[in-house]
Simulated scan of single mutants.
Amino acid sequence: MVIFLIYLMLSWFGIGAWLIFDPAALESYAGVAALTPTGETELRAMYGGMELAIGGAALLALLKPRWRCHVLFLNGVVAGGIAGGRLVGVALAGNMSVYTLSALTFELSTVVICLLLARRLQRSGESNNG
């Protein structure tokens, strides 16, 4: 559990910090570019700020075990929502890039692992401990 939470924290923090400071990096690896300063701010918010916040939640779960089930739920819902949107995008575009496949792998595996770990926490009663 702890190793997975560290993995989530580092993954979300890493990409979030990178993209809050360098949103133009999305263009080279994902084909996403800001056309205006407002677009650049949006990329910083959604790819930087949101991912930093999710990483912060994972850090909270590491420091406060009573939050672990909630943070697993958050990560599962967020990763599942992103994966769902990505799958719709693939279906509509009729294209699957290496980037898209790797992102889907992260997102779908995160959903599955979060579900399994949350179920284990609930069964053991750990989700109520502080």
Rank of each mutant, 00 (worst) to 15 (best):
A79I: 07
V111N: 09
G55Q: 00
I82Y: 15
M1L: 08
S127L: 11
L10N: 12
W18S: 12
L72T: 06
M46W: 09
L8P: 02
R120F: 07
T38R: 13
F13M: 07
L92R: 08
I6F: 14
M96P: 04
H70S: 13
W67D: 03
V32I: 11
L108D: 08
G48Q: 07
A45H: 02
L87I: 13
G56V: 03
A25V: 13
L108H: 01
I113W: 06
I113S: 09
L5T: 00
G16P: 04
A93V: 09
G14M: 02
L19C: 00
P37D: 06
E51T: 08
A33S: 09
V32C: 09
L63T: 07
Q122L: 14
G16Q: 05
N129H: 11
T100Y: 09
A33R: 10
Y7I: 15
I54D: 01
W67V: 06
G31P: 08
V98Q: 15
C114Q: 03
R66N: 07
L62Q: 03
L26C: 09
I3W: 12
P37C: 00
T105V: 13
S102G: 13
G55S: 02
R120I: 02
S127W: 04
G76E: 00
L52T: 03
M1V: 13
S11W: 12
F21C: 15
M50R: 10
L62W: 03
N128L: 15
A103N: 05
T41L: 15
S11F: 09
A25R: 13
G94A: 07
L59T: 08
A33T: 06
A45S: 12
